[in-house]
Design a protein around this nucleic acid. Structure first.
Lengths: 270, 270
DNA sequence: CGCGACGTTGACCTACCTCAATTGGCGTGG
DNA sequence: CCACGCCAATTGAGGTAGGTCAACGTCGCG
């Protein structure tokens, strides 16, 4: 269930036209590893993946680097930068990638005109946060084998959808070095771990493809539970975001203080 | 710069009254470790910390547990649950804590009435995401000493504000076991690490307090850079969230397709 | 006074890291 | 079409940060 299918399902045809026109205005190509946004910069534009994958990462002063998220075609990478004076992370191409850059005014105008699009991206931002939490468990609690298996499961499911027939394949653009940066392991140890997965359930990794002949086996190793991806909830999720965007001067609940009330705050928080 | 001060600065007095009235409607007390929301449950209410700390966590089938975030008084713990059919994480008291539970209808009504409050919490959700990213670097890249030092720095700064006079103290409600669950280490190793920090820069931890006689030293060990907390940007940040909430039927940009246009989508995304 | 929760210590172990060299595939230029 | 060079994957040997297990100390509280 690739993200762009979700978008197609959630946008009206009219919205889709506006959205794609917006994307078409300014597309950029990046080479492998090239930075699109660097930590500390003032963000000027929003980035939407058109083709290839994009990585969000952060690095320590001494060069250690952690990949924080992977974005696939259709995904908006940095809604958060909309609201922040200087970026607290970097964005780079995983390998050759094409990315639409949307200027702030264009984005504002579009979102203002299509509240539904705003809601879709707010919702997808929440899903991205859920994915981050799942990565935190990997980094903090899972062993190397589980970590790598879990990453493969996630990437597979994000492209092919949840309950899958065994044996299938999908794109896979990360090098073993990048897997290492995403999982907090060493490139060498990732290599050994991948070999172990090959041995145990026939996973094939290479030539930019991932083949999974035994998804059940792989997801058992990973203790993979796809709920956190919130598939199948997209429509309902977006609807539930809606209340945040409605404004009305309604009474909040019975006995509620009115705006005229200028009583001192209760000082509840201690 | 505790979160509740930020709230006070950003809300109008009128909003503050409404907000606190909302909090006052239903306050609950929890004991140490008691769950407020369990993974997989359908979330019914939003939780705002009144006193004590709250932890967001997730656990693996075999019981390994990762603390994902710590919430302090004034913070809304689970805006994301607003939009989700079943929670993908759990919420529990770090130790005895008092928490306001806001029903969905109340929350909708309040947010509808005070868009500014919605914006404040959307912004704070973005900051929470930034904190999560910083934790990911800890989990993936930092050594034990750096990890624990970084956690202490964060907790200290979140309570006392950014540039601090050396020597100060603050609340500290985590046990060493909980520090271990947050940092992905072992309780035993956390103990040894804390002792090392005591030796190196005189940190004192105990009796629910954290004393930091040499913050500069501690933050050097941690390579702590407080930018990710986005202090001092709260007001501007909230203003920048605003465009997401404005609706208008404006032309998006020159040459933009109109709603009448029902041309097929461009098929840009590949 | 006794119990339970936290913190502390020691001995031993292993999952993963480091360093370093080698192999294989692929795109490019001759 | 081949040769070169680059990038990614692989292999080996040896080291260490941090884990495991188990016991003991200490503080606060009922």
């Amino acid at each position: 269930m690739p993200f762009r299918e979700i978008l197609n399902r959630l946008m009206t045809p009219g919205e889709r036209v506006l959205w794609e026109a917006c994307l078409a205005r300014n597309a950029c190509d990046y080479r492998k590893g090239e930075d699109m946004v660097r930590e500390g910069e003032h963000p000027r534009v929003l980035h939407v993946v058109l083709s290839g994958w994009v990585q969000k990462y952060k690095e320590l002063p001494d060069g250690r680097r952690q990949i924080l998220a992977i974005y696939m075609p259709g995904q908006l990478c940095d809604l958060d930068l909309f609201t922040v004076a200087r970026s607290d992370h970097s964005l780079a191409a995983v390998r050759a990638a094409s990315v639409a850059e949307i200027s702030r005014p264009d984005a504002c105008a579009l979102l203002r005109r299509c509240p539904n699009i705003t809601q879709i991206f707010c919702w997808s931002e929440l899903v991205a946060a859920a994915v981050q939490r799942e990565w935190m468990i990997s980094l903090g609690q899972r062993h190397a084998l589980e970590r790598v298996a879990h990453l493969l499961c996630e990437i597979y499911v994000r492209q092919r959808g949840a309950p899958n027939p065994d044996d299938g394949e999908c794109d896979f653009f990360l090098t073993q070095w990048q897997i290492a940066e995403a999982t907090g392991l060493t490139q060498v140890h990732v290599n050994r771990t991948v070999q172990e997965l090959r041995r145990r359930c026939g996973v094939e990794l290479g030539r930019l493809r991932l083949r999974v002949p035994d998804f059940a086996g792989l997801s058992t190793i990973a203790a993979f539970n796809p709920n956190y991806l919130h598939f199948g909830e997209a429509g309902a999720g977006v609807d539930r975001v809606a209340p945040l965007f409605e404004t009305a001067d309604v009474p909040v609940f019975a006995g509620f203080p009115t705006d005229g009330d200028r009583a001192a705050p209760l000082g509840l928080l201690s």
